[in-house]
Nucleic acid binder design. Sequence first.
DNA 1: CTGATATGGGAAACCGGTGTCATTTGCAAG
DNA 2: CTTGCAAATGACACCGGTTTCCCATATCAG
Lengths: 350, 350
Amino acid sequence: MKGEPKPRMAAASKPTINDIARLAGVSKKTVSRVINRSGSLNEDTREKIEAVIRETGYVPNPQARALALGRNFLIGLVHDNPNAQMILNMQQGILEALRDTDFELVVRPVDRGSPEMLDDVRSFLVRQRLYGVVLLPPISEIDALARLCDEVGCKYVRMGSSVLDDPDHMVASNDRDAVIEATRHLIAQGHRRIGLISGPHGFNSAQVRRDGFEFALAEAGIKLPRSLVADGQYTFESGIAAAESLFDLQPRPTAIFACNDEMAAGVLYAARSRGISVPEELSIIGFDDTPIAARVWPPLTTVRWPIVAMGRSAALKLIGDATPVAPEDQEPSTFVSTLVRRGSVAPPAK
Amino acid sequence: MKGEPKPRMAAASKPTINDIARLAGVSKKTVSRVINRSGSLNEDTREKIEAVIRETGYVPNPQARALALGRNFLIGLVHDNPNAQMILNMQQGILEALRDTDFELVVRPVDRGSPEMLDDVRSFLVRQRLYGVVLLPPISEIDALARLCDEVGCKYVRMGSSVLDDPDHMVASNDRDAVIEATRHLIAQGHRRIGLISGPHGFNSAQVRRDGFEFALAEAGIKLPRSLVADGQYTFESGIAAAESLFDLQPRPTAIFACNDEMAAGVLYAARSRGISVPEELSIIGFDDTPIAARVWPPLTTVRWPIVAMGRSAALKLIGDATPVAPEDQEPSTFVSTLVRRGSVAPPAK
DNA sequence: CTGATATGGGAAACCGGTGTCATTTGCAAG
DNA sequence: CTTGCAAATGACACCGGTTTCCCATATCAG
């Protein structure tokens, strides 16, 4: 009874392509052909093999494939440390695209500013022979990174606030238009003295958002004195500091557009500690629609950009060659952001 | 001129172990020994080979290694969707531990509740032949997942609020003690009518936190009428709803302990929309110390648990066998949480 | 009926490492 | 002067796929 040569094998280790070949009575190459739908083969043979695969629950070994193919099925996500929700939404979008493919997502936070950052990324790409990487803002704006990817032969997609160059390597939201819409909203409410809390210098997103703001003001014939523009760093604390400086102005702005929600939350925080009521005495608009925007009081009017969809699109761009998509599923490179109206905007007091 | 067999090879493709062996005049096995610090070998030989490796910039192919070894160098992070900051901090902690090792982190969000969840995770583990996985709460509490890992021979570590069983597979914070401390803090301020917003039923963390709360109350001889306990779901919205129900009580509680910050933020939001001032008329304590706790007004007193350190510890537990650690670096299984006092607690009004 | 052309499928090399085992050498012990 | 043993290294099979090339058979034109 217990004499069978290898009865427990099935339960223990995973079947290999050789097992399948033996069970189906063919060579492993033929099994390979079935798996990869390559070459021509008899319908009966295919069905036979597919049946065996099904009943054994065979799954090809990704490592062996990667070795034989010379590339693997790993998509990297390289990011600095913007807000957590953004990164997670991006991960979600990418993973949605990767679902039911052979790809997996590998994450790699890096430290912009660190002199080893480029080497760090290079070794990440080279060592793992990544199939492709998604570069998140703000490091996606670093051209040296894109060149690095080209250099090591790794596909890449950059996420951003505007199409920098090659749309093949770029997925962007049109922040400028969204900011214009947001600013027009403030103007339509009657605001004229509107403060801006900008993003850090050198960031494309910061520049684009500021441009949109200034455009909308100019369009309405409103002058923007330099004093109404405060520098921010996209952080909560910098939002507080910038708000303080704007609050010191005489007269105070009746509305503030902060280039992201973190800073907008800082404005709200600063306003509360000064006893300035929002939105009665001060209207605020943020950008990003992070969870915090809906959780503070009053909830912040803000701009939402479709992060998940953009992540999905980025991933599809990367693996598009590997798993051809129908023309109607062609991934767009530019996404539109929308204004989310909540409770932090009202007409100015007087 | 163009007759050379393979002159451009050097610039193009990466060197393999064979190239190194040839250049150093040894066999590839010897090179392998240098890379893995295994076996005994002559000091001169080692230096020679190391020199060659250095100047060629050779990096071993992880896929080939994975294939030969039968396991790869990927650590999986499996999580449901608790708050983003927690997941990201956990990723950070894990990656700190993985830095300078051969391991990479692969993320996999899953959908608890979905009937395919287990199969989903199984195929994730099996296909990629993961070296190990970190299970985040709340799905870390699902025993079937742990059994699954055992079954497919994948190492795992569960993160949690208390040591469930085997400390080898568990990294936990001692939530109970922290909650007791937080509750005592409220009591010390003079609060007697303290409401609790619990976590969802069936969650160990929810149970543990509730236990701590009840213990501290009992310890102080304070009765806890059933009406002062509101069910929450760890979400902002459920916090609002639970707060509303507590606010309807006559008399109203003078303080509320919410089992996480999301719900605490909901309490604050609900209080503001009712015109209840915090902390004058209502004290609030949350749990987790997520960014939102410091960004609302007033900033929330809350309990901080060392997520990053726990993530690091979890990863080290997994790869401990692979990269032996010094005894003094032994990773603890239990971490202590601390009360972070901010502005949402004050003595009761009267 | 012969030779040309497709088509299905197999043998063996290969991808880049690691494991096992054998071999060579140096040196201390018998 | 063996013998014995450990250190240093190499030869070779193997991990589980893919690719190249080649053969067998079937089909078809002449």
